[in-house]
Structures are given as C-alpha cells and as structure tokens.
C-alpha cells in the first residue's frame, strides 16, 4: 500500500492489512500456514468445537507463530443463547474479548438469522465483547447493530462458500454510506476481482476463507487476494471516474485537421 497512514481501526486496534482470513477448508495446517503468510493477514478466524484428543497440532499454534490476532467465531450456532455461550467459552479459551458473531438460520443456505444475531449482539456488547456480526446485505440491520454497539458490521457478498461474489453491490454501498464503524465484506467471494470490488464499493476490509483454502493453489490465491484488496482500496481512495453512456475523447482535437 502506498499510503502508509491508511490503517484499519477496529475496536480501537490498528491493522495495516485489510484482508481478514478464515481458516476453514484448508487441506492441512501446512497449506494453511503458507496461505496465511502469503495473504499478509493480521487477523484470522477460528471456530470453537469439542476437544478431540485424537487431533494433533492446532490452528492456534500456526496463528501464534505468525503473530496473527485470533478472531473466534460462533459458527454452528442457531440461537442467540448458543452464540453467547460459545463467545464466552472462546473468551475463556483464547483470552480475547473479540468475537465474530455468526448465528445461522439453516444448514442449506447458512444465511445469518437477523433476529437471533441482534439479540446475541446486544447481550455480548453488554458483557464487554468487541462484537463483529455476520449479517445479510441489509442496510437497516447494519445500522441497528452499529447503534447497539457493535465494533464493525460484516455483510455477506453471497452465501458462505458459494463463490458467487457480491450479489447486491448496491446494498453494500448503502451499508458503507451509512456506517461509521468498519464494514467488512464477509462470505461468498470467489476470486480476486470479487475482493477488489468489495474494496472499490467502500468496504473497509474483506474476510474470506474458502476462496483461498479450496483454490487449486491456496498460497497463490492468497497472494492474489492480498493484491486485490490493496488495489481495490487504492482505487477507492483515488476516486473512480463517472460512468458515461458514450465516449469522451482522451486526446485533444486537432484544429485544421478536419
């Protein structure tokens, strides 16, 4: 990034990378490790699950070794109550009061449940958490969650893991226009141009996992996403030209050459 002062601030904490990574879907910890390094990420999500004594190695070791801040999520929760308990367990296990709040409505779409998400957000904010809620591309809900004290809002581009890109850029722009907390485009991105578009629309950061971890070459896709986020951010700051229906000559007209 050419602008050294262009930092992302979430919950009072500064990040120079605007690419937040997830860790789901990687075929091995070694592949994940290399992809995280290539991505340049400084903030990465993990899920909370029952401890399995048979599992060797931990995603936490990878994050610690790389100095990446851990962002626990509440993936797999269907109710506010489950999400609040999961967040509290994550705070205890990982010694962080940050949480990516994720309360899904059904297994088929994995779309976020707005009612349960809002309920959980209010309870977690009251309990001292830095809450980053995963939501649909709904400007009204985003505003309500900001008012409830969330540290960021994380609208989806498309369903989790779908790779469909940003299905409703207009709604994302509306969320960005109204928000005074960071807007993090979360879920549905498939390739680098999707990440660049998110940043061009004015999002403050992008969160992705599957697009990298399930790419044929995860490390290379992580590099591509890193570049795309940086390029999209610079384009946003630079200010794009307006769209026109017809051409506008970029060369001066030549008098006497008719």
């Amino acid at each position: 990034m050419s602008d050294e002062d262009d930092v992302l601030v979430i919950g009072g904490e500064k990040f120079s990378s605007r690419l937040i990574m997830g860790t789901g879907g990687a075929p091995s910890l070694e592949v994940l490790d290399r992809a995280l390094e290539a991505s340049g990420t400084e903030l990465t999500t993990v899920a909370m699950r029952r401890l399995d004594p048979a599992v060797q190695g931990s995603v936490l070791d990878v994050l610690r070794r790389r100095g990446i801040k851990v962002l626990p999520n509440t993936a797999g929760c269907f109710t506010a109550g489950e999400a609040v308990l999961t967040a509290r367990l994550a705070r205890e296990a990982l010694e962080t009061n940050w949480v990516k709040l994720e309360v899904i409505s059904d297994e088929r779409t994995l779309l976020p449940d707005p009612i349960e998400t809002f309920d959980a957000a209010e309870r977690l904010v009251a309990d001292g958490f830095v809450v980053l809620p995963y939501i649909g591309d709904d400007p009204a809900l985003a505003r309500r969650l900001e008012q409830a004290g969330c540290a960021a809002v994380m609208p989806l581009g498309a369903p989790i893991g779908s790779g469909l890109g940003i299905r409703n850029p207009h709604s994302i722009e509306l969320i960005v226009e109204a928000a005074s907390v960071p807007v993090i485009l979360d879920a549905g991105l498939g390739t680098a141009s999707d990440a660049a578009l998110a940043m061009e629309l004015g999002c403050d950061a992008v969160l992705l996992a599957t697009a990298v971890t399930r790419a044929q070459r995860p490390e290379l896709m992580a590099s591509a996403m890193r570049s795309a986020v940086e390029a999209g951010r610079m384009a946003r700051l630079a200010g794009r030209i307006p769209r026109r229906r017809y051409a506008e000559a970029s060369s001066p007209s030549l008098p006497g050459f008719a």
């Binding site: 860790t23 599992v55 936490l60 851990v70 962002l71 993936a75 990516k100």
Partner: peptide, 26 residues
C-alpha cells in the same frame, strides 16, 4: 467455568461437561 475455578469446582450427578478448543473454521 473459568480456568481458575477448575480445581475447586466439583461435578455432581448428571452434569453435562463441554470441553472446547479452537479448530479451523470461518
């Protein structure tokens, strides 16, 4: 049950104990 209370907290009949850790996800 916070870590500091593990030694001093006794279980009782029919308790449901969940032991969680971080895994790849999100």
């Amino acid at each position: 049950v916070s870590r500091g209370a593990w030694e001093s907290t006794s279980l009782t009949e029919n308790d449901r104990v969940e032991v969680l850790t971080a895994v790849q996800g999100g």
